[in-house]
Simulated assay, not measured.
Amino acid sequence: MDAVEIVRRSYEAFARGDMDAVVADMHDNIEWQQAQGLPHGGTYHGLAEVRRNVFDPLDRDWWSEFSALPDEFLDAGAEVVVLGRYRGTARQTGKRLDVPFVHVWSLRAGKAWRFRQFLDTRGWVEALAPNR
């Protein structure tokens, strides 16, 4: 299976809520870089940290609805660039989220060993912020 198909498979699993399948093609010690400026921005190491700090809070704490919808997968050899949109509704505020993202996946031996997220974090933060 080529790198694009491996990455695409993760988004398809995320869309159907199958978190075990989402992380199935990730290295146990993946380096996960969340965009600075997000409430959970920073770098996480390993699947346990990624699940605890990135995936678990998505539905539990932040979003009553959330999706990461890929529009394009760009094959860059050992890296795959994904262009897409985050959409959702904030759990506490009811505000809508609709912002573009860029994800860069680095793969080695059929496993993602690094993920980098790029987005304008303002829309995300504003959706989560309570009205003042």
Rank of each mutant, 00 (worst) to 15 (best):
M19T: 14
L128D: 06
H27K: 11
Q36M: 14
V104D: 00
A35S: 14
H103N: 05
F101C: 02
R87I: 03
W105F: 09
G17R: 14
R16D: 14
P70V: 02
E12A: 13
L58Q: 06
S10A: 15
T93N: 10
V80Y: 02
V54F: 09
H45F: 14
L69C: 04
F55E: 06
F66V: 01
E65M: 08
E72F: 06
V50M: 11
L97S: 04
A68C: 12
D2C: 01
E49I: 13
D18Q: 09
G46C: 07
G84L: 03
G17C: 14
V50I: 13
R132F: 10
G88Q: 05
A90G: 08
M1S: 09
R87W: 01
P130Q: 14
D59P: 12
L83I: 11
P130I: 12
T43W: 06
R96M: 10
R60N: 06
M1G: 09
T121R: 07
A68K: 04
L83A: 10
R108C: 10
L83E: 10
P100V: 03
A109K: 08
P70M: 00
V104Y: 01
V102D: 02
D20G: 05
E12S: 09
N29H: 15
R87E: 03
G17N: 14
D120C: 03
L38M: 12
V99Q: 11
E126H: 12
A129R: 15
A21V: 13
T43M: 10
R52S: 09
R122Y: 13
P39M: 08
L74R: 13
F14S: 10
F55R: 10
F14Q: 10
Q33P: 01
W113F: 14
S67Y: 02
E31Q: 13
V99H: 07
R116Q: 07
L58M: 11
A127W: 06
N53T: 10
D98I: 01
L107S: 00
L74K: 10
W63Q: 07
F55P: 04
L97A: 04
S10Q: 15
